[in-house]
Computed example of a mutant assay.
Amino acid sequence: MKVFDYAEVQARISPARALSLLTSALKSGFEPADDPARSITPVPAGQILSMPAAIPGWAGAKIIGLAPGNTDLPRIDGTYVLFDGPTLQLKAVIDGVALTNIRTPAVSALAATKLLAPGVVDKMVVFGTGPQGVGHARALADLRSVRDCVLVGRDTEKAEAAVAELASMGITARVGSAPDAKDADVIVCATSAGSPLFEAADVRDDVCVLAIGSHETDRREVPSALMSRALVVVEDVSTALREAGDVVMAIEDGSIAESDLHTLKGLVLEEVEVDYTKPRVFKGTGMSWEDLAVAVGMME
């Protein structure tokens, strides 16, 4: 059995490698709709999440603890256990936070490979200055040449720290504010916000939005008015209806219908026609198969 810590996961799985692993899983015949739903168990300090999955040749599960009250300690901690698929013999224990911080931006980047028009991204605005905000900026900079990368957060010091972290990776970024979204080509929503981060009328008609901030049905980062005129892509329809507030609330207020939703697998297999002149929205909540697909890369 192998054990991989945070640094090893970060060093061995680049954004491009994670994207390739996810693509391979989707093209292997695996159906995301068959992925087990995550189990959320309330405990006194917060929640424990269990996310098991199986793809051809492999099985595994991520166990994550969420403690909202933590101040001096991380709010999220956890581990991933990887099994051989045919025998269910334990093969590896992997840092769960590192895996999450890599696979979530990689899923968004996978959607972005199809949702972004060819060429340079003139301006990308990232709402959120935590690991997911930084991870998305890194993943998209790896995918496209980004002329202007702007990070927006509630805490200026944290935003400046995130810009410095990106600089250490060779990525130039700057601290901005919400109005920067008005002329953005790409908007990344990676926050804990419960209400929309911007008004639909304040962003471009051809904007691409990648929203991954929550997996709760009563929270959203994208306004319904934008969803109503956008191509909306989700990881899986049933999962989105169960966990994606951006989707659930837009359906409830009549802005979109379930039939308007397209899947990430359909996008990757080029079964979805993309109109780059209208808004494109990818709403991700995170699925168990994604962790497993990336975890397998640690064994290669």
Rank of each mutant, 00 (worst) to 15 (best):
F4W: 12
Y6F: 14
Y6A: 14
V9G: 04
A25L: 05
P36L: 01
S39F: 10
I40A: 15
G46R: 03
G57A: 02
I64V: 15
D72Q: 12
T79L: 15
L82Q: 00
F83L: 15
K91M: 14
L99A: 07
A111C: 11
A112F: 04
K114V: 06
L115P: 04
G119D: 08
T129W: 07
T129K: 06
A139R: 05
V152S: 02
E157S: 13
L166Y: 08
A167S: 15
G176C: 08
G176Q: 02
S177E: 15
S177G: 12
A178F: 10
D180T: 05
D185L: 10
V188K: 07
A190E: 06
A190F: 05
T191M: 08
S192V: 11
H215N: 13
P223Y: 05
V233T: 08
D236I: 01
S238F: 02
E243A: 03
E243N: 03
A244I: 10
G254I: 08
E258T: 14
S259I: 07
L261Q: 06
T263D: 06
L264S: 08
L267D: 09
L267M: 09
E270D: 14
V272N: 03
E273A: 14
D275M: 01
K278E: 11
P279I: 04
K283L: 10
V296I: 12
